[in-house]
Write a protein that binds this DNA or RNA. Structure first.
Length: 918
DNA sequence: GCTCTGCTAAGAGGA
């Protein structure tokens, strides 16, 4: 029997006498999630009573294979040795985190705070693991070593190592792997799976097993272990995979005819009974020096006790995360003096004044900084839980008709497969043409139909064929070929977005670095203890625009930081490029960053237009725009060359997420320039700014704020906005815009920029559609001849679409086209993606997109579809910054299409309608 | 109830 619900009460554990002798028990009251809301009692027996130590009312609890009985008319559940008890099952604990936790809970916590720094054992370990995978897939050893060392070129180079030297080290380890593979019948390929991604709904756990042999987990360790037994934490890691393999095996059995007699096998029983650890360094040690068991492969048996121990450990982590408690280390028996993390542990404890078993060193940072740390740490963890909810969507099998759920491409038709060099596979499938957020370059879970219970592999999307949408997303017309690469072949019928915690990890690292490693002087200005200081450069940088010139002067003269506020069309990117050049001329090494790849590429483009090209772009191949690939740092290749290119670059450009990578952490800069800073969270901004001595933030807090999944407001306010409020004197607002006609910009200027925004010159102010080649305004219907017009199509909203309004928008676009306006000069903006799809069905050759995606670009003619009728409920309309963005994309003509009554129900929108109705 | 960009992940070590 299975029970799942919210804990209402946890009684104190007690000892009772049973027919088998003394037993411990603990009663937990749970309110079931679904069905009748009557609370039920679950009695936890034996080791499961440990759960009571951390279980609290409000937490979710799942109990599997519990015994059920009736007592005084009430259903009671009993969880003994055959049962599984899972706390907060929606929180997906990573297997490597369980491993860290059994060593020491504080190690688990420290792993989250500071990211892995570049270290040779780590890089070598990664290469050995990759070679291991290659060998399992039948690749030649020397080919594998060469290829994997090349792939790790940049990291190896940054560590100052040579490829040959690393190859020698890796070969020693690989020899152990090869020797072991050649024993007996272990080479039969069908028996093997390499790098198996496992996600468990039942146990709230995920991880990637190095290999699975005959259904049993094999873990590779590049260390040595001369004991006969594997290390405890290594056994725990392998056992966690065994637990998840058992769940899969039980699912498979349940689905097959084998158990047709009605019997079932529990996942615990179905788990493999043996695990293998492969300590490859054992093969390389000198046999005369070392004694003990030098065989690399060590097997151990996996019983239900060990499996349940893993579940209980996982539960401790999930319970701690529920309250975001901070572990002290006293929870474990580990001896701090043997711990590699001891120094870090003591330093973090000292700086944050945390209790810890290892003790504290150093002086605590000021209380206001500690408070800031706690606030942002909690907010980032809330963001992590939101990512976990994305994982949960993987096992909620999507109904086929849910076309608005764009997290998966379903109903694919497998077309074929091809083996690539190195044993990887290229798989092709035909898509049904559904809209999806899956793009080229994405990491996805490819499956034969169900991502969790079916055959599934982590895959990279290589190509979504024939896409006619500029952003590479699959569009709605007919089938298209999809190509992915995977380690193991399968019949691809479905692709799911594979959620990543990478961004949350990086935010946490940035928070740690900014508060614990930056100098007090750098932090003083962030915490308002000191005003930022400036020099006044004598030079003139930009001739015909005082605000732009001031902005560059501020940036060049900044001792701490400068802020440049750039409303739409004010030449923000041009100014930024001029600023970077001025900094470089002074001799600075500059880091150029932004949240999105697009913004980073735009900034490079502006630099290029000003003749500056000594730039290295760090980023993934699929993230970097085609015409900017020439600046991209190839991270694979000769170590010395890779590292040299990065280290020698005067200007390095990367997204803030990439700034948090280990490779970038090895770099330092004089000045960090961040574009579109209004779209970044504080820790997101800090990921870039901590790499430099001073920084310049360029952005507009009146446009869209950071995108955050959880509802926590701590992250939705950008550092840019906070600093511009705290230090207005550090900011310069660019006040002359080169984009919009006078009338078009008037509303935004009044509502969002205190009337300060004005056209740069008469020509900008007076522009109209007649200025376009072959266009006459007289060819337009009379209601569209003004620069700003309003159309009420009298439609009605159904879901997030308004078909009548979509028709009206199509009519407006047709009128402009017939008046001679080129399709490329027209853009259509809608608040909802559903309406965008509705519009796309009517408009084949003009750009249609959401407000959010239109930020940063502009068109001669813009048509906005508001969708709403009745009233304006919904957060999309609450944030006025969204209309600021929508209305300021137009240069010569702006048409608002919406329901007059609905829009007039809100003051700001009412003023907008009046302005547009002129 | 809605907007949505980043990111390969997981990888090491010893009394």
């Amino acid at each position: 029997m299975q029970l799942r619900g919210v804990v209402v009460d946890v009684a104190d554990p007690k000892t009772v006498s049973t027919q088998y002798g003394e037993s411990e028990l603990c009663e937990v009251t749970v309110r079931p999630e679904r069905g009748a809301g009557e609370p039920t009692t679950v009695t936890l027996w034996g080791k499961w009573t440990e759960t009571a130590d951390y279980l609290e009312p409000g937490m979710e609890l799942a109990v599997y294979d519990a015994e059920q009985r009736q007592y005084q008319g009430e259903t009671q559940y009993s969880a003994g040795g055959d049962a599984s008890v899972v706390v907060e099952p929606d929180f997906l604990v990573d297997v490597t985190d369980i491993r860290a936790w059994v060593q020491c809970p504080r190690m688990y916590y420290l792993r989250k705070l500071d990211g892995a720094e570049l270290a040779y054992p780590l890089v070598k370990g990664t290469v050995v693991h990759e070679v291991f995978g290659d060998l399992l897939r039948g690749r030649d050893l020397d080919d594998a070593i060469e290829a994997q060392i090349e792939a790790a070129g940049l990291d190896i180079g940054l560590l100052g190592r040579e490829a040959d030297e690393v190859a020698g080290d890796v070969r020693d380890h690989a020899a152990a792997i090869e020797g072991w593979l050649e024993q007996g019948t272990l080479t039969e390929r069908d028996e093997w799976r390499s790098e198996m991604t496992l996600i468990s709904e039942r146990y709230g756990m995920k991880g990637r097993a190095d290999a699975v042999r005959r259904g049993m987990p094999v873990e590779l360790k590049t260390g040595k272990n001369t004991k006969r037994e594997p290390r405890f934490q290594d056994k725990i890691q392998a056992t966690a995979y065994a637990l998840m393999l058992g769940e899969r095996a039980a699912n498979t059995l349940a689905a097959s005819d084998v158990m047709a007699d009605g019997g079932t096998t529990s996942p615990l029983e179905a788990a493999p009974d043996t695990g293998t650890l492969l300590y490859t360094k054992n093969a390389a040690v000198d046999r005369n020096e070392e004694s003990g068991d030098l065989s690399p492969a060590k097997e151990f048996s996996i019983g239900s006790g060990l499996l349940q121990y893993v579940i209980r450990t996982r539960n401790e982590i999930a319970a701690m995360e529920h309250d975001t408690d901070v572990p002290t280390g006293y929870e474990a028996n580990a001896k701090c003096e043997y711990c590699f993390e001891q120094d870090t542990c003591m330093a973090v404890s000292g700086r944050l004044d945390q209790e810890s078993k290892a003790g504290q060193v150093g002086v605590a940072i000021p209380e206001e900084e500690r408070e800031y740390f706690r606030r942002f740490y909690d907010a980032i963890e809330a963001e992590r839980r939101a990512v976990h909810r994305e994982y949960a969507k993987l096992w909620e099998q999507l109904p086929q008709e849910r076309a608005d759920d764009d997290r998966a491409l379903i109903d694919l038709e497998p077309l074929g497969r091809r083996e690539l060099d190195g044993g990887r596979w290229e798989l092709r499938a035909r898509g049904t043409g559904a809209v999806s957020k899956i793009r080229e370059g994405d990491l996805v879970l490819a499956s034969d139909g169900h991502p969790i219970t079916g055959d599934a592999e982590l895959a990279r999307v290589e190509r979504i064929g024939g896409g006619d949408q500029a952003d590479g997303t699959a569009s709605a017309d007919g089938g298209r070929e999809i190509v992915v690469t995977v380690d193991e072949p399968l019949s691809v019928r479905r692709l799911d977005v594979y959620p990543s915690e990478l961004t949350t990890d990086r935010l946490q690292n940035a928070l740690h670095d900014a508060l614990l490693t930056q100098s007090p002087e750098q932090k003083d200005v962030l915490f308002g203890r000191r005003a930022p200081e400036f020099d006044e450069p004598a030079e003139t940088f930009i001739d015909n625009n005082d605000a732009q010139d001031d902005a560059v002067a501020r940036a060049v003269g900044a001792e701490d930081f400068a802020l440049v506020h750039g409303p739409p069309g004010t030449g923000k990117t041009y100014t930024l490029a001029r600023m970077v050049r001025a900094l470089v001329e002074r001799g600075d090494r500059v880091l150029l960053s932004a949240f999105t790849n697009r913004a980073v590429d735009n900034a490079i483009e502006a630099l290029e237009e000003q003749g500056y090209t000594d730039i290295v772009r760090v980023g993934t191949e699929s993230g970097v725009r085609e015409d900017m690939q020439k600046y991209r740092l190839d991270q694979s290749g000769d170590p010395g060359e890779c590292a040299g290119r990065l280290q020698g670059a005067q200007v390095v450009a990367a997204t803030t997420a990439t700034c948090g990578s280990t490779a970038m952490a090895s770099q330092s800069f004089d000045t960090v320039v961040v574009d579109e800073a209004g779209q970044l969270t504080e820790p997101g901004t800090l990921a870039a700014t901590t790499l430099g001595d001073r920084f310049v933030l360029v952005g507009d807090h009146q446009q869209l704020p950071p995108v955050v999944q959880s509802e926590d407001e701590t992250l939705t306010r950008s550092l840019f906005e906070r600093l511009i409020d705290a230090h207005p004197e550090a900011g310069v607002m660019l006040d002359r815009q080169y984009r919009m006609a006078q009338h078009i910009q008037a509303f935004a200027s009044r509502e969002f920029y205190d009337g300060q925004l004005r056209p740069a010159n008469g020509a900008v102010a007076a522009q109209k559609v007649d200025d376009l080649d072959g266009v006459t305004v007289d060819a337009l219907p009379s209601h569209l001849r003004e620069r700003v017009s309003f159309v009420d199509p009298d439609g009605s909203r159904t879901g997030n679409t308004n078909p009548t309004e979509a028709d009206a928008v199509a009519d407006v676009v047709r009128a402009y086209r017939e008046a001679g306006v080129a399709a490329a000069d027209i853009g259509v903006i809608a608040p909802y993606r559903a309406q965008v799809a509705e519009l796309n069905r009517r408009l084949s050759d003009v750009a249609v997109d959401t407000v959010d995606r239109f930020q940063g670009s502009s068109k001669e003619v813009i048509v906005v579809s508001f969708v709403a009728t009745g009233d304006l409920d919904g957060p999309l309309f609450e944030d006025y910054r969204r209309i600021n963005v929508a209305l300021t994309r137009a240069k010569k003509a702006l048409v608002l299409v919406g329901d007059r009554t609905a829009l007039s129900s809100d003051e700001v929108y009412e003023r907008m309608v009046e302005w547009a109705s002129g």
